[in-house]
Write a protein that binds this DNA or RNA. Structure first.
Lengths: 127, 127
DNA sequence: TTACTCTATATGAATAAAGCATATATATGA
DNA sequence: TCATATATATGCTTTATTCATATAGAGTAA
């Protein structure tokens, strides 16, 4: 097994994808179906990284179960039938709470990178 | 069940704790034992939030298994025996890779918060 | 000396999140 | 007709996290 793979992308060496808040964010902008959301997630957040469609579809079903979004089947357009999702008021409230968590986590990341810089400076100082 | 609890701290509504990179970061600064690392994690990153000791100890054992850190028992000090960890070269390399991932994730968070601000402005614009 | 607390490490069991493989079906273009 | 893009979904497995609990040394207060 490739070492870089082992320490880059493998479980234990990845940062959570935060799919759920991203889906709520996109659905707060406009109603959309799963495949559309998958494409938007890829272009907006996960560019080069793989994003498993099953994770997106499963997350959507889970969020509907929890009352954060609603779905309805739309037929008649091109291609197969689409399940189109709409965010609920509960979903908007959940998004607002998510934002608080993401702000906190962002601060943790900044702390982390600051501490890391200090270590690098320490290394240089000893040269 | 409390709704705020359900949508704040419960599984599915939290941001990954990134314990492993934090442990590598702290051990890149100085060797330390688990309990010490637990306390440092709490004061530096997780202030008010609960941090389960079992997660820390289990992460440390996993990282030792993976060759990122080494441990030895230290007795003779006050209190029970401590298992003291030292980072390896492999561990330092893993930390460097983690840093890249955290920078990327930080950018995603910034994108997320920017998009969220746009939605809020949209709301205000319609008033 | 007993009870209590703090320090210190660890495991079993359950649940949640994520990844991998795969199935299904429609529509379109070569 | 065959391949590809669109679109959704489930089964299985692994990994991460939480909760509960066990163990034990050392210090301190009653």
């Amino acid at each position: 097994m490739c070492q870089a793979h082992k320490y880059c992308e493998c479980p234990g060496f990845r940062v959570e994808r935060f799919i759920q808040p991203c889906l709520l964010l996109l659905l707060a902008q406009k109603r959309a179906h799963g495949y559309e959301l998958l494409e938007e997630l890829r272009s907006l957040f996960f560019q080069e990284e793989t994003l498993d469609p099953s994770l997106v579809y499963r997350s959507l079903r889970k969020m509907e179960e929890d009352g954060l979004i609603l779905s309805e089947w739309v037929t008649g357009g091109p291609g197969p039938a689409r399940r189109v999702y709409t965010i609920t008021e509960e979903g908007r409230a959940a998004l607002d709470l998510w934002v608080e968590h993401i702000r906190k986590q962002l601060q943790r990341f900044e702390t982390f990178l600051r501490e890391y810089s200090d270590i690098l400076e320490g290394r240089e100082g000893h040269e």
